[in-house]
């Protein structure tokens, strides 16, 4: 068996879908867990704008419903991320990655600013388009190998088309928007760290995980 992430430490069996922890995925899982706990207990920071030409500044107040909603989305994103880190099924992985994608959209879309809404819409479109290569990749893996379980796929020399792997990476890129950090700066103008950081962290984590999945297959 190909053990790119280390020897599996333990398995959690849910029927056909087996969740397993290797040293690599366990590390990522704990990282997501710790950050989710941070999000749970932390208070959001307020955006401070310096008034131009005067010795003054003003802070944007975040309403309580908005705070609650974004915290809810961040926690959901953290949980989805934890699932994506440890799942042992290709289709399950694609579902969790799309869940991360939609949570990210939710975190950003809650901000009441036209500019941010516009950005959230564009990201949402990319996340929606990203599900196309994701599901296609999972389906192609199932059709060409006859299994979706990563444990089975790692076992022997099952030939997975290169196109399926490439599509999987492309889909995760769309959901995680990892290569678009330049544009993400637009969203950082939106008030409310640590919730926005959750977007970046989840993108990073799902990208680390997809690298493992690709090497595993």
């Amino acid at each position: 068996m190909n053990e790119i992430g280390g020897t599996p430490l333990f398995f959690l069996e849910f029927g056909d879908i087996v969740v397993y922890f290797t040293p690599f995925t366990l590390t990522l899982f704990l990282l997501a867990l710790v950050f989710t706990v941070f999000v749970l207990i932390s208070r959001p920071e307020r955006q401070i704008d310096i008034a131009f030409g005067a010795d003054a500044f003003y802070a944007k107040v975040i309403s309580l419903p908005e705070l609650r909603f974004r915290r809810f989305m961040s926690i959901a994103c953290g949980l989805a991320c934890m699932g994506a880190m440890v799942t042992g099924d290709v289709f399950d992985f694609t579902l969790l990655v799309s869940l991360v994608g939609i949570c990210n959209v939710g975190i950003v879309a809650a901000v009441k600013s036209r500019h941010v809404q516009n950005a959230a819409y564009q990201y949402g479109l990319v996340a929606l388009a990203g599900t196309v290569p994701l599901f296609s990749a999972a389906a192609m893996v199932a059709a060409t190998t006859g299994t979706l379980s990563m444990i089975e796929l790692a076992k022997d020399a099952v030939a997975i088309p290169l196109a399926a792997r490439a599509l999987l990476v492309l889909g995760v890129m769309g959901e995680g928007m990892a290569p678009f950090y330049a544009a993400k700066a637009e969203m950082f103008r939106a008030p409310g760290a640590p919730y926005v950081i959750m977007c970046s962290l989840s993108s990073l984590l799902i990208f680390l995980r997809v690298a493992e999945v690709i090497l595993l297959l």
């Binding site: 939609i102 959230a120 819409y121 599900t131 599901f135």
Partner: peptide, 15 residues
């Protein structure tokens, strides 16, 4: 697969 598409479509149209 279908539900993911519908769900995101719903959220995006509201945005």
């Amino acid at each position: 697969g279908l539900v993911v598409g519908i769900a995101e479509l719903l959220a995006l149209s509201q945005i």
